[in-house]
Write a protein that binds this DNA or RNA. Structure first.
Lengths: 252, 252
DNA sequence: AAATAGCACGAACGGTCGTTCTTTTAATTT
DNA sequence: AAATTAAAAGAACGACCGTTCGTGCTATTT
């Protein structure tokens, strides 16, 4: 029933506007970026809508509720982390080699600022720990996957004879995680790549301690120049920005 | 000009209520606890007022604005951290001994849950990093103090001949900080004291690597049974709860 | 050509937020 | 005893929040 007297009809505009046409993916990428900057709980639908240039109510064509949006944001971020860090690790050779690949992949992912404020999962995990729901379950699963990958590297190294069987694997995993996790924190706080280098050296110190057949006296600086070397090129632009730009969205 | 017809007069209650009488300190302790649970930016004046049983407007007798309240909260938390961790460290003997004391003090401060969700400074530092102001400056100063203390321990150890002069002090500080910081994160996430033990072992592994005159072959499990032992007693109740209770405030 | 379905809009809702103002009460000072 | 002061209450404000609703475009399907 078309009503020619409706308010909307009275204020009809030229009707030649581009009518942007957003998709779930474009919204989610902007939302992930915003959530990384301000925290998952601190994004408002108004801010998000303004960021991508659409109205608040328009968002409800894609997400039934705010909670569903948050879960979708976390899911998107986990997918990015998976592509950036976990997948490259799974493609690498087992053992210490894989450990070095995951280390470099994670630090590169920090250096390139795939997320504007460090690892997204680390940023939201503390916040979500006290707020159960779908989003919380997703990050818990991602954290489990992450720890399992590190543990797998150590056990593989033991099976291959690279690593002493006489260690507490859990302790080693803790120390490696400590290097990477703290690197994330300090790099965000200081924006100084030295924090990334120190994490690399810290992991290497742990590896030296548990490795078999490496002279424990003085081989603490080189030794990984070719295997994990090709990853040290000029950093491409941050993933989120790249994808968002490719869709013609101007975030700011 | 007493107005006997005022609304307030009409709903006058028995007027024998205790009229609690709060002070800045009592308000701040409850506020610190609330901020530790929900994040500094996520406390509302209404929640805080309800928590301590007074009205929102009553808070404005003590704090001119919300920002001032936030700064005061951070200042209070820093004072607690200082008393719990830094002061005991400064009283200890220099060098490795002091490093062990600060390590144990920090882990004990986590275990006793002085703050309900781990180290308050660590929790709010990321949040404040993107929100300049008085509160941000305070945590930045506290972090600097913390790093300076760890560095001081290492340098002292070198001067005393306990630690090899042939190391990069900054790298060692990074690794020690990594153990403690990650312990904080994982302990909050899992509520499992194993994370504290692993941090202690991790620090000890670093110390073993840089120490002079310690047999690097097999002394990786005991060796700190007496020096840092006396601190492993039954944990007293959390500081905040204790102080709040002593003032007769029932938080929940 | 007509009907349908998916996006996106503006307006409005009830609720909560930080803040201000006025008033009452209790304690202290004069 | 009167005056002053500080602590706290209570009501109200404008702004913003998530959400709903009715409507209008535009492209696809019938």
């Amino acid at each position: 029933m078309p009503n020619p007297l409706s308010k909307a009809n009275l204020q009809k505009k030229n009707a030649t506007q581009p009518k942007a046409q957003f998709g779930r993916a474009a919204i989610l990428l902007a939302a992930v970026k915003l959530a990384a900057l301000k925290g998952l709980a601190n994004i408002s639908l108004g801010d998000l809508a303004a960021e991508i240039g659409m109205s608040k109510s328009g968002l409800y064509a894609h997400f039934e509720t705010r909670e569903e949006l948050e879960a979708a944001i976390v899911e998107t971020a986990i997918t990015i982390l998976d592509q950036e860090v976990l997948q490259p690790a799974f493609k690498a050779r087992p053992g210490i080699e894989r450990l070095r690949v995951v280390t470099n992949a994670f630090l590169s992912y920090l250096e390139r600022k795939v997320f504007p404020r460090g690892c997204f999962i680390a940023a939201v995990s503390l916040e979500l720990e006290s707020r159960p729901g779908a989003a919380c379950d997703l990050v818990a699963g991602a954290l489990d996957q992450w720890v399992a990958l590190l543990r797998q590297c150590i056990v593989e190294g033991q099976d291959l004879g690279e690593i002493t069987p006489n260690i507490e694997v859990t302790q080693v995993v803790f120390e490696i995680q400590a290097m990477l996790f703290t690197s994330n924190f300090l790099f965000v706080m200081s924006d100084n790549v030295v924090q990334l280098t120190q994490a690399r050296a810290g992991v290497e110190n742990v590896v030296t301690r548990i490795a078999i057949g490496s002279d424990p006296k003085k081989n603490r600086s080189k030794k990984n120049e070719r295997r994990s070397g090709p990853r040290r090129k000029a950093a491409p632009p941050a993933l989120i920005d790249a994808v968002v730009a490719s869709r013609g969205i101007t975030p700011d």
